[in-house]
């Protein structure tokens, strides 16, 4: 069964790109969220196998959202979407419980490699 993914990013552009990457890797994107608040809510609702989380977002940052998701479900798998120059933010997210991270600009095979690794599929 395809793993279920929640994609969190405030830019539709990014969400679409990430969604396409997942689709090409045989994953099922079950939901999207455009800010941290929505992300937490969507997570609780959908209980995805994996969540990709942008860091800089309105209303609630990806780090805060990750913290809340992990608080609600300690086995949640959250992958941070970071950019170069955001190293310390990603470390904060890891402290908050993020499982791994990917770095923009994304290359499909890099993203899928990280994700499959995290899900124990390789």
């Amino acid at each position: 069964m395809a793993k279920r993914v929640l994609v969190v990013d405030d830019a539709i552009f990014m969400r679409n790109m990430i969604k396409d990457i997942f689709a090409s890797g045989g994953f099922e994107v079950v939901g999207e969220a455009a800010n941290g608040l929505e992300a937490v809510e969507k997570y609780k609702e959908l209980k995805p196998d994996l969540t990709t989380m942008d860091i800089v977002m309105p209303f609630k940052s990806g780090i805060e959202a990750t913290r809340e998701i992990i608080k609600a479900d300690s086995s949640a798998v959250v992958i941070m979407c970071s950019a170069l120059g955001q190293e310390s933010l990603v470390m904060e997210a890891i402290e908050a419980g993020a499982s791994d991270f990917i770095v923009k600009p994304f290359r499909a095979e890099d993203v899928l490699a990280v994700v499959k690794k995290v899900l124990g599929e390789t």
């Binding site: 830019a11 552009f13 990014m14 790109m17 800089v56 950019a83 923009k104 994304f106």
Partner: peptide, 9 residues
Amino acid sequence: HSVKGMASS
């Protein structure tokens, strides 16, 4: 930040 991310992608 969003523009940067999109443009670099």
